[in-house]
């Protein structure tokens, strides 16, 4: 049953392609530019919504009102904040390592944006539908430790350095359970392609087949993007602000943007891999995707405003002694499950 509205973006895309007629090469180039701009626009809009949502959710959990002055119910606040951040002086402290210091926030955001290329936003709405989509996501997001440690090192500040050093330990340790938690789904679908994974969830979402994988993924991903309770890298009660202590104005804004973009990213991956992506009745696919992403974002915010922070060694213990064995067990369990399934229904799936 074709759903109303679900093909809006596809129609627009086809219309643009149609303008170039037979010249498919030019159409591809133009489409790539359009896709890139769209990713950026969606990202910035989503981050604006998330920042505001975070403040509202946190206020709601803390029995407060939250921002309520600018715009309807305070939702204009985010525009004011952005203008303020952009209007700040571009201040560079003395003795920072100039180029690494200036480039770190840009790389941090750049790496995050790159990952969005393979996310299926709706049916047929994958900007670049790579065969190695999941692999690409993991590979690129693993890079994000580099700008963090660069920022920590180049800031020439002990707090930043300690934050950066913690980030290396934390992000690399949690990378492994993160990869393994997604492996179960890949074993079932036998593909890395994000769109194929979503297609495979037409009847049952993988969160039901892979509950352990889902839990491990959410925890590891929260640690990966340094959200509370794993925000040891920032740890405002210990380090002031961790690796971005020395950043202000627009550079701080870039870090902030990247952080929420990362939140968007892990929620989107969770929605794609475990919650059935665009699959859902009645509503258009891209709307379903947005709803699932928002649900994940809310869940992660809920954790943040409920739990205290881990200590650094406890974090390591939790990563290596709990999450890693759990994710390995999940892989074994999935393998056994697939084998048994194939014994019962030979020839189906596999």
């Amino acid at each position: 049953m074709p759903q109303f509205g679900s093909d809006i973006f596809l129609l627009i895309a086809n219309w643009i392609r149609g303008l170039f007629g037979a010249n498919t090469y030019a159409a591809d180039v133009v489409m790539d530019i359009v896709k890139f701009i769209m990713i950026y626009v969606v990202l910035v809009l989503a981050v604006m919504v998330f920042v505001m949502l975070e403040r509202k959710v946190c206020a709601w959990m803390q029995l407060r009102v939250g921002p309520n002055r600018l715009g309807p119910r305070g939702w204009g606040q985010i525009i004011g904040d952005m203008i303020k951040l952009m209007g700040k002086e571009d201040f560079r402290p003395d003795n920072v390592d100039k180029w690494p210091w200036a480039l770190a926030p840009m790389f941090f955001l750049g790496i995050t944006i790159m990952v969005f290329a393979v996310l299926p936003f709706g049916r047929g709405m994958v900007p670049v539908d790579l065969d190695l989509g999941i692999f690409y996501i993991l590979a690129i997001s693993a890079l994000s430790v580099l700008p963090v440690v660069t920022a920590g090192w180049a800031s020439n500040n002990k707090y930043s350095l300690l934050g950066g050093m913690r980030s290396v330990a934390q992000m690399i340790s949690y990378e492994i359970p993160l990869v393994f938690s997604l492996l179960g789904v890949v074993m079932i679908t036998q593909t890395f392609k994000t769109s194929a994974i979503v297609e495979a969830q037409q009847h049952v979402w993988f969160v039901l087949l892979q509950p352990i994988g889902f839990v491990v993924y959410v925890i590891a991903a929260m640690a990966e993007i340094n959200r509370a309770p794993f925000d040891l890298i920032e740890a405002e009660s210990e380090f002031g602000c961790g690796y971005f202590t020395e950043y202000s104005g627009l550079r701080f804004g870039l870090f902030y943007l990247a952080e929420y973009a990362n939140l968007f990213l892990i929620s989107a991956v969770a929605a794609t891999v475990f919650l059935g992506g665009w699959q859902g009745p009645f509503l258009p696919g891209w709307l379903w995707f947005a709803i699932k992403v928002l649900f994940m974002v809310f869940l992660i915010m809920w954790f943040r405003w409920t739990f205290p922070r881990f200590r650094v060694d406890q974090l390591m213990h939790f990563g290596w002694k709990v999450l890693l064995p759990l994710s390995l067990a999940n892989i074994v369990l999935t393998g056994v499950g697939i084998y048994v399934y194939q014994l019962i229904f030979p020839g189906i799936g596999g």
């Binding site: 946190c58 803390q62 925000d231 740890a235 409920t306 739990f307 205290p308």
Partner: peptide, 9 residues
């Protein structure tokens, strides 16, 4: 210890 909410309570 990182848990802001109880403080507001």
């Amino acid at each position: 210890l990182g848990g802001m909410t109880p403080f507001l309570y």
